[in-house]
Design a protein around this nucleic acid. Sequence first.
DNA 1: TTGTAGGCGTTATCAC
DNA 2: GTGATAACGCCTACAA
Lengths: 330, 330
Amino acid sequence: MTVTIKDIAKLAGVSYSTVSKALNNSPLVKEETRRKILDVACEMGYEPNLAAKQLVRKKTDVIGLMWPTIERIVLATLVTNISKAFEKTPYSMILSVDAQETAVDTFRKFQVDGMIVFGESKHMHLYDYTIPFVVYGVSESTQPLYPIIDANHEASMYKAVEHLHQLGHRQITYIGQYDKSDALQIEKVDGYVKAMKKLHLADYIHIVDSNGLNWFDGYSAIDRALESKPTAMIGGSYDLSGGMIRALQEKGFSIPHDISLISYDNIPQMANMEVPMTCIGVPVHLLAEEIVQAIIHQIESPTEEPTVKKLTPTLTIRESTGPSPEPSDS
Amino acid sequence: MTVTIKDIAKLAGVSYSTVSKALNNSPLVKEETRRKILDVACEMGYEPNLAAKQLVRKKTDVIGLMWPTIERIVLATLVTNISKAFEKTPYSMILSVDAQETAVDTFRKFQVDGMIVFGESKHMHLYDYTIPFVVYGVSESTQPLYPIIDANHEASMYKAVEHLHQLGHRQITYIGQYDKSDALQIEKVDGYVKAMKKLHLADYIHIVDSNGLNWFDGYSAIDRALESKPTAMIGGSYDLSGGMIRALQEKGFSIPHDISLISYDNIPQMANMEVPMTCIGVPVHLLAEEIVQAIIHQIESPTEEPTVKKLTPTLTIRESTGPSPEPSDS
DNA sequence: TTGTAGGCGTTATCAC
DNA sequence: GTGATAACGCCTACAA
């Protein structure tokens, strides 16, 4: 039989409501009694019954994360970080890898206090469910229907291009996926174009569509990228950049001596690549932190207008970037 | 306010205990009343309160899956399949990506009925927790401490080698990770060695340590693999084999004309590789099914002796295997 | 500062 | 067939 607060009460010689108070750190209980009760509870191996608690509190302190596409390593890292971030809060997190509809049903059953949604929230009726949620990784500049949290892609690319510019680079090529259906990728490309223009490098704009986001997509995009004889490249994602490095090395380019490289995505793994990679993006632990804060805020304060929160990216300089091999021309 | 069975009772003009019965398909309620109650319930958007139910039933119908390393794509596929397999059962599944200790705590909080553990169950005190669990992907030939479910690696390799042997291959190289800490990988290698010996191919044994399980590990292992001039190769995992194909193609080998390839892991994605891949392993949907059955069995029938269940692998023949280019010598 | 009692939404056991 | 009613384990006024 599992031990309940009544058992503790009996053994501690108090009423069970006192036990309840003590266990919840209520200030209305004498320090001495509290200690004793805590001791007894611990000794008996007491474990509060979530179901009972939930029944009366109408709150689970659990947040559900919907994660339908579990293949991308950057997302996996983000999930891990979010999970870690929750450890510092009173909330726990559970995951669903099901399709959005199924996931929502599960989460409703569990009566999670809130949800985190990755990517496009196609089924707008999420919103009908009255359960608070935030969306990550969707680009929406107009007044959104729900709270969105995302990286500032324009700022990302501006910082990346600016860094290369300062190192004397002009011919900067972008390699990434240009898939109409993926708003996030489009935003990156757009950010690059805007940044190049703003820094008066419009003539050097060169975009290579990698037709995918995997290692090999980056690897095989290099030939096309080299056509414009760039002194620097920006890779649209972690995996992509990994393939790019490899292809460049195989072709005899030395990084950063011959070509500088910056990758999008700011995750610790960037430091362990063939060449430790200079990267741009919101550091994943910060991103996680922000997402966690956002959903908690959403839960705890009555809904204001949904807003888009654009996170400021950080440039993390490592060994893949260096001065341009070509003399600065202008 | 959420709608409860009392609300339904009022609107349907019956007592709420009748509603409860109707909702649980009790035979003790007239068909007519049942229909009416169900209608009302549906109309009001009734959603049963899991917490309340659990409080009295002492059962959650929920199973927790511990998944600490979320990076490997094959595991991701397995998780998805397990999730799908649960849909056919009365159970639901929740996921935790936390470290084992944290995950167990979460699951205890939820009072899950059972747990699925991936890989080494380091913290043996799982067993203390009285909550049933099964472990997948751990090799233990002696009497185990807990129920284990795993693929039969010896049989896998035997079938793979046998298939190649029948096609006339002799020089069959294995590429995989040979990391002492990963019992699963070791088993594969051992399986290969045993199979080669059993088929009198001991002289042709050639094992290449890929030093990892990623795409690029396979890609870069090819040079070493070619040293023994094999006519066939076996890749230790999906990602590995992907890299192997690429490297071979780049070197001008035609698959399967010059070299045959079999990959470990039997997932549908094998069909979509550069060359549709012949593969060996327990088909992932079957594996999922078995794991689900195992944990449910573990929950519903009082613990017998824990056993190891070795699943029979299937050889799925696609285009990456063909007859040996060399004349059969013996 | 501590104890009493009512209720959270269900299920299950009895009477009717 | 159907309807009271007592649990389930906990929280929270309110009373002592």
